[in-house]
């Protein structure tokens, strides 16, 4: 399993091949469509991320300090962002999730595009996953 930094580098390389915003979004949406489906029974209120206007669900499990999660969104653009987070952080040690800075969004300029809109909340999603990582580490202690 490659580490978060390595995946960030790969994602960044993939996106650098895309020439314009339309293509970047197209790629992002495809990633969302390719993400493993979330079980419908996990799409419940307790898994909703607060602070997103479109609905975003994360069901995070912690197993021996490794974070495993399913996620979904009713917005396909947001689902693409969710899929990126899934690619980056699923099956990773909680310690790494907590400590690694996710620079790839900044690099791609997607922060500027998406997270600044209050209707989204990439920030809220990342914060949600980091909080889950804290819980996961606490359990391990």
């Amino acid at each position: 399993m490659p580490g978060i930094q390595e995946i960030q580098k790969d994602l960044s390389d993939d996106f650098s091949l895309l020439v314009n915003w339309e293509e970047k979004y197209e790629y992002l949406i495809e990633m969302g469509m390719d993400m493993p489906a979330m079980k419908p029974q996990n799409k419940v209120d307790k898994n909703l991320v607060k602070g997103c206007q479109s609905s975003v669900w994360f069901d995070v499990q912690c197993c021996d300090g490794i974070m495993v999660f399913e996620a979904d969104s009713d917005s396909l653009v947001v689902k693409g962002m969710v899929a990126m987070l899934h690619k980056l952080l699923n099956n990773q040690p909680a310690k790494d999730v907590l400590e690694t800075e996710l620079s790839v969004f900044e690099e791609l300029g997607l922060w500027r595009h998406i997270s600044s809109q209050r209707s989204n909340g990439l920030t809220a999603m990342v914060a949600h996953l980091k909080a889950a990582a804290v819980d996961c580490l606490a359990k391990e202690d």
Partner: peptide
């Protein structure tokens, strides 16, 4: 079948400013 939010973000990527919500 398309979220208004998605429509707004993707139109913006083409330089078209609309409002959604």
């Amino acid at each position: 079948g398309i979220q208004h939010y998605d429509m707004g973000v993707l139109l913006d990527s083409m330089g078209i400013a609309v409002r959604t919500g």
